[in-house]
């Protein structure tokens, strides 16, 4: 192992962390955009009841998956 491998490793680790942060952040942003756009789109479905039901089920599924997957760790 040469002398500058440690700073290099730290730099690599920081880059990986930044990339992971970006992935997580973009994923969450995408979810919020989908809810915003999906809310309008759902209005094109038949009745208001169906519209709110679709959005409601989507939000519930998201929450169940998002929170549920952390509860096991």
């Amino acid at each position: 192992m040469n002398a500058d491998s440690l700073p290099q490793r730290q730099e690599d680790r920081a880059a990986r962390l930044r990339a992971a942060n970006r992935r997580t952040g973009l994923g969450l942003l995408a979810i919020s955009v989908v809810f915003f756009v999906g809310f309008f789109a759902s209005r094109m479905l038949s009745s208001p009841d169906v519209s709110i039901a679709v959005v409601g089920v989507a939000v519930l599924l998201y929450l169940a998956v998002a929170i549920g997957r952390h509860l096991r760790k």
Binding site: I31, S32, V33, F35, F39, Y62
Partner: peptide, 21 residues
Amino acid sequence: WLITAYLLIAVMPVLAGAVTM
């Protein structure tokens, strides 16, 4: 706060959609 943040991601776009309408 983790759970609160997930809630915010879910409901804020809905409010934004409603007031945009």
